Amino acid sequence: MSKLTEQQINTNLENLSLVVDEIGKVIVGQKDVIEELLIAIIAGGHCLLEGVPGLAKTLMVSTLAKTVDLNFHRVQFTPDLMPSDIIGTEILEEDHVSGKRFFKFQHGPVFTNILLADEINRTPPKTQAALLEAMQEKRVSYGGKNYPLPKPFFVLATQNPVEQAGTYTLPEAQLDRFLMLVRVGYPSKDDEIEILNRTTSNTNVELNTLLTADDIICIQNLVRDVEVSPALLAYITDIVRATRPGEHLSDSLKDYIRWGAGPRAGQALVMCAKAKALLDGRFSVTIDDIHSIAPAVLRHRILLNFQAQADNVIPDTVVKDLLASVAKPISPLA
């Protein structure tokens, strides 16, 4: 285990479990979405959030940032957004004592703990690439110098799955950089009634700060200490390999998959399953942990062909069939 006292570990895990309820003071419903966002954060990855406008995606992220006491910046991605608008730029300054002029790097909004990249598919590939490079390297390069990003650093990018006119679709190689693709659906009728009640009255909600940046880093380190049996590692490998053409795909899958997931998908499955187990207060991964996070980890890493589009087959359907077709280990704890 990580070098933390048992009391610190228990306190951090208890507060982590309370974050979901704390966010629920502001966000009605969407518990699964909130949990998946937390899983992505404590697993040390980034998240792509997909949903139509008006589902409180921005409010959800800003509320999350308040409950965990992290700096939060939001950038609205537009067609005229430049890379320097994200990472920063050099400005000319003058020393008032000597009168000498010099260039100083002005940090952009990417220098934060949580960055909301709103409608990332609205900006050109050059700007997308600048953000994705910062996500991968956890630093910004400018003028031959490297500037490290704050820790922890988490990017939540949103995109509208309906209106695609004038958008720049993220290439598959760049989609693979996101640990999870989380889908936000419409609320239930009861939840929608409660949303109307809360947002049209004079209700003020006081949010409690439950975790600090240092606490999040400790939990991220703790996630890696969660145990995964050799049998479950082999099971995860079988799942990932089964997405690839030429492998032993079931009849319901082989006609629809054009390109499968790479090794990074297996790494993401392991880390997210570990984070899910820790979020539930356990230090060992189960098959249920793997199945619960598999759709969010795999749906953007499986490229379907034209036949799938013609038959209205979506990635989630493929993942469901995939999990049903891959043989489970006889003894998951072996």
Rank of each mutant, 00 (worst) to 15 (best):
H96S: 01
L64T: 11
A65M: 12
R74G: 04
N71V: 04
P83I: 08
F102T: 02
T63S: 15
V75A: 06
L48D: 10
L48A: 09
F77R: 09
A117F: 04
G54I: 09
T67C: 10
I87L: 12
E50W: 11
G99S: 04
K104I: 03
L115H: 01
P109I: 05
F111R: 01
I114F: 12
L115K: 04
T58C: 11
D95V: 04
T67K: 06
L81F: 05
H107P: 00
F105G: 02
M60H: 14
D85G: 03
A43M: 11
G99Y: 08
H96R: 03
K57W: 15
A56T: 07
L59R: 15
T78R: 09
F105R: 06
L115A: 01
H73D: 02
A56M: 14
F72E: 03
D69E: 15
H107Y: 05
F103Y: 05
I114D: 06
L70C: 10
P83Y: 14
D85S: 03
P53K: 09
L49T: 11
A65F: 12
F72T: 06
V61Q: 12
V61I: 15
D69R: 15
G108A: 04
P83T: 05
V61S: 11
F103V: 02
F111A: 04
M82V: 02
G45M: 13
T67V: 15
E50R: 10
F77D: 05
L81K: 02
V52N: 10
G54S: 08
K66S: 13
N71Y: 12
E90T: 12
L116D: 00
C47M: 14
I86N: 03
G44Q: 06
G45H: 11
A56C: 14
V52T: 10
E94M: 06
G108Q: 06
L49I: 13
V61K: 13
C47E: 11
H96Y: 05
L81S: 03
I87N: 08
V75H: 07
A43T: 03
L59I: 13
N113C: 01
P83V: 08
E90A: 06
R74F: 07
Q106A: 03
R101G: 01
V52F: 12
F103A: 01
A117H: 04
L116K: 04
K66F: 14
K66W: 15
C47D: 11
T89N: 07
E93T: 03
C47H: 11
A117N: 02
L49V: 13
T58V: 12
T67R: 05
I86Y: 06
F77W: 10
I86E: 02
K57P: 13
I91T: 04
F103M: 05
G54Y: 11
V61T: 13
I91H: 09
L92F: 09
T112G: 07
